[in-house]
């Protein structure tokens, strides 16, 4: 049998390309093209009539001189760090609890998932109703029943509090995701490790610190990274609950579609956000996860 040594490998490679081609095409169409088009738009002054005017780096220069952009950046950082930390820690705590045996554990485990699976819009309406300054139960409880405060507040509407509310909402809504991933990892940790540690005289805390946490390292790392990406790009939750919290996506939306409609500038904000995200993920993988 005479055969070219590379041919089989080549054939396989060709076959490989053929199999991934549909996905590549889809990715190109739905992801690469919009990203590239957005990049292209960011160098133009976009007119609704369609006659765009090339302005070079002007949009970026305008952006870097805009105080509102830095405000939005700060809000985004607080929002992302707060919500990512919150969801992960709460998820870790709840998962550790649920890993113990207790009556009706199955039911409770299921109920914990509710905020994550319930439709966002109904949750947002429920929250808005809870925090309504005049008729909401929150103000009724704090002012009239418990007397903690003597003033009714519009917790969601007031810009100062709104950010906090949005962070808490995100933690409440998304911690089940962290919980679910951590719990499944916890269940696969070999029990022998704990038994051996117990024999060596390790207490509860030492076992958690020296066995559980290192075992969870990658799963927690992945959660943090995913939440980080999702929350930097998060639009729906923030916009529906409190559009006055101007994270970068919300700021982009307002720039693109309200006031003096500036879609070129909005495209530039999106590009900056994209670069920022890539940079941070790269750093995170290298420095924190050491992959």
């Amino acid at each position: 049998m005479v055969s070219h040594p590379g041919s089989l490998a080549q054939q396989e490679a060709r076959f490989g390309w053929k199999t991934v081609a549909p996905s590549l095409l889809l990715i190109a169409l739905l992801i690469v093209y919009p990203v590239a088009y957005n990049l292209y738009l960011s160098f133009f002054e976009v007119k609704l009539s369609g006659q765009n005017e090339f302005v070079g780096f002007n949009n970026y220069i305008d952006l870097l001189a805009d105080r509102a952009f830095y405000d939005s950046l700060t809000v985004t950082v607080i929002y992302v760090v707060g919500s990512t930390l919150g969801t992960t820690l709460l998820g870790l705590g709840v998962a550790s609890l649920m890993n113990h045996k207790f009556p009706l554990r199955g039911l409770v485990r299921g109920l914990v998932l509710l905020p994550y699976i319930a439709p966002l819009i109904s949750e947002v309406f429920a929250w808005q109703f809870i925090f309504d300054p005049v008729n909401g139960i929150y103000n009724h409880m704090t002012v009239e029943v418990l007397g903690i405060s003597d003033e009714r507040v519009n917790l969601i509407g007031t810009p100062g509090n709104a950010l906090l509310v949005v962070i808490i909402f995100d933690i409440w809504k998304n911690f089940p995701f962290a919980y679910l991933m951590i719990l499944s990892r916890l269940q696969s940790i070999n029990n022998d490790l704990y038994e051996a540690a117990t024999l060596d005289g390790a207490n509860r805390w030492q076992r958690f610190w020296n066995i559980t946490l290192p075992e969870l390292r990658f799963v927690v790392g992945a959660i943090v990274m995913l939440r980080f990406i999702w929350n930097i790009n998060k639009f729906d939750e923030v916009f529906l609950l409190a559009p006055n919290v101007k994270t970068l996506p919300i700021y982009t939306y307002f720039t693109a579609f309200t006031g003096t409609i500036e879609q070129g500038l909005a495209a530039a904000i999106a590009v900056v956000q994209f670069l920022l995200l890539i940079g941070l993920i790269f750093l995170y993988i290298r420095r924190v996860l050491k992959w």
Binding site: P133, V134, N135, E151, R152, V153, N154, I156, G157, T158
Partner: peptide
């Protein structure tokens, strides 16, 4: 006015006698 940013929807407070 009732606390925080308000819009026409707050007319309900009037209908409730508040």
């Amino acid at each position: 006015t009732p606390p925080g940013p308000q819009t026409w929807r707050a007319r309900d407070y009037y209908l409730q006698g508040k």
